[in-house]
Amino acid sequence: MPNREKLKNLTQACLAEFIGTALFLFLGIGALCASFLAGVQLSHWEVALIWGLAVTIAIYLTSGTSGAHLNPAVTIALFTFGGFQRHKVLPYIASQLLGALFGAAIVYAIYQGLFLEWELQNGVVRSNPEAMASAALFGTFPHKSLSVSGAFIVEFLITCILMGMILAITDERNGAAKGALAPLLIGVVVAVIGAATGPLTGFAMNPARDFGPKLFMALNGWGAQVFYDGAGSLYLWVPIVAPIAGALTGALLYRFMRGQVRVGASAAEIVAGKTA
């Protein structure tokens, strides 16, 4: 019976991760499609704010069931530094990836007619480079003046900030309790980061947020070009590796700042949470 109860709880948590990830991607990508395909006038700040609010809504929906990771980088960082259980890591990540894929698919399903109309009006063949203008609605790509290594640094830094702030906001020992405001504050962090750095890399900060929609695009006509940047360099790995490295660094720095890791501690002591 205890094992069945654990399996039931894990299944519910994974469903929450799937739904939450799908929801915030549906809302965020949907706003971009509304702007690009339907002529809705959205400023850069408004787009960043919508993504932040989408994350907030998804956290409010799922935090009580799964903890609202909604991001493989967050799951890995919490497993490494936050005591998250090992057996939940891969199911959570799989649920997040599938949720991101599903969220992108739902957006495309409701905007499909507008996609086809845009391609017809502009003479765009989806498998050709010109279609990357619509691909950018789903995945994240670097600014044309930014190298792959430069994009890696940006994604690393902003995910480091995001993870540190997630821990700061949810740490009951860090000032006044944030309580019900925590999801909103995390959404504000996402929005501010997006406003500051969005034009550089699209502020992925989440391997599922980027890979799920790109996989959907690759399977639905855009092809393998979505895995590369505008200069022909493989870019798929950047929004995967950089956020994971950034989240791990952000979690470690926050714990060090809070005195939860002593100077000169071994790797085993850091992971185990030994303090000074």
Rank of each mutant, 00 (worst) to 15 (best):
P2G: 02
N3H: 04
N3I: 00
K8T: 11
A13E: 05
E17M: 05
G20D: 04
F24S: 03
L27H: 03
G30K: 03
A31I: 03
L32T: 11
L37C: 04
G39D: 06
E46H: 08
V47Q: 14
I50A: 03
W51L: 06
A54H: 02
I57T: 12
L61R: 00
T65M: 09
P72M: 09
G82E: 08
G82M: 02
R86D: 07
L90N: 04
I93G: 01
S95R: 01
F102T: 11
A105G: 09
Y111A: 02
Y111F: 13
W118F: 15
Q121H: 14
V125G: 06
S127G: 10
N128A: 14
S134E: 14
A135P: 04
L137Y: 05
F141H: 10
S145N: 13
L146S: 13
S149C: 02
G150Y: 01
A151W: 00
C160D: 15
L162S: 12
M163R: 04
A168K: 03
I169A: 14
I169Y: 08
T170S: 14
D171N: 11
R173D: 15
R173S: 15
N174G: 11
G175A: 11
A176P: 00
A177I: 05
A182Y: 00
L184K: 06
L184G: 15
L185K: 09
G187R: 01
V189T: 14
V190L: 06
V192L: 14
G194A: 08
L200I: 00
G202Q: 07
N206R: 02
D210E: 08
K214W: 05
F227M: 10
Y228V: 01
G232E: 08
G232T: 09
Y235R: 03
L236R: 01
W237K: 05
W237Y: 14
P243E: 09
A245I: 14
A247Y: 03
L248A: 10
L248S: 09
T249K: 00
G250D: 07
Y254M: 09
F256E: 07
F256G: 06
F256D: 03
V261M: 03
R262F: 04
A265L: 03
E269F: 02
